[in-house]
Amino acid sequence: MMKNKLNVVWWVIGLLFFAFFPKIFGIYYTNVMVTLAIFSVFALSVNMLLGYTGLLSFGQAMFFGFGGYGTALALTHIPGIGVLPAIGLGVLAAVVLALILSPLVVRVSGTAFAMLHLAFGQLMYVLALKLYNITGGEDGIANFPVPGLFTESLKSSPEHFYYLAMVILGISTWLMWYVTKTPFGQIQVGIRDNAKRIDYLGYRVPQSKAVIYVLSAFFAGVAGSIYGLFHNLVSADGSLGIGMSFAPIISVMIGGVGSFFGPILGVAIFQLVDELILRYTESTELVMGVILIVVVMFMPTGFVGLYRMLRQKISARRTPEAKKEKA
């Protein structure tokens, strides 16, 4: 009971924080927050595959990109479409792509899964560049209308956009968290640990993978769609490039694979490091590369793992000492 009340208090504090964020911190940090939220949802979608099912994809950007292009195209070509249906269409595009790929990709795992996605991701990138009439080629699709729910346009009111984005991204985060708590989520963890045994317990491994794959694409699509709206631009390099597939992997690695909230921490750290280092060098590639190397070599379980390990060490040190003192 006490715990429940405490939970409610935390929820209220959290909601108030996000509700008054733009008023307190001003427009610059409001936009930073939207960026963080977008990449959190994107990283969580990667972690859904990587952390909860053990599938490493080098092409998650294609779902992110499909979400963005779908929404941008809908807003460009369908007169009077609302912002929510446009987001819906973007997400639908990502889901349809995942459904098409799922029979193929769920039959492989490990290295082949990663490489297959690298190839498909690159294919989508090339197509986005070449199908100029649809995608606008290198320039991408820009300056499409961004209608608000209650206002004509969100373009000049970042505060309104913040609320729209945060509600959608917040719900997405909650949904992804909820999935991990369902029986289905438990089965996914089982697949990551020991797919063979899951099979022998009577679960269909490929079908489970297919479902999680499509769910992951759904949330990557949400993130991509909001990202496109946020920048009012969707382009091959911005939404489909190989860097966009690796940014969420890096965040997940920094935060800690498999812990639910680790990737969010990872996104914050990665964005911060990126921001700081880019003041000294132009090269995002260098930043990403160095972070990947350092994380894999020195903290393979990420910050969450580091924290757990430290906590364990401290409690382990305490117990024998306590015993000694008694003796």
Partner: peptide, 22 residues
């Protein structure tokens, strides 16, 4: 120093990024 295939994939990808940047 990399642990597991996933670690190896990600580590070598990181090295690849660094080489390209260099």
């Amino acid at each position: 120093k990399a642990v597991g295939h996933m670690g190896e994939l990600i580590l070598t990808m990181g090295i690849s990024f660094v080489i390209v940047a260099a």
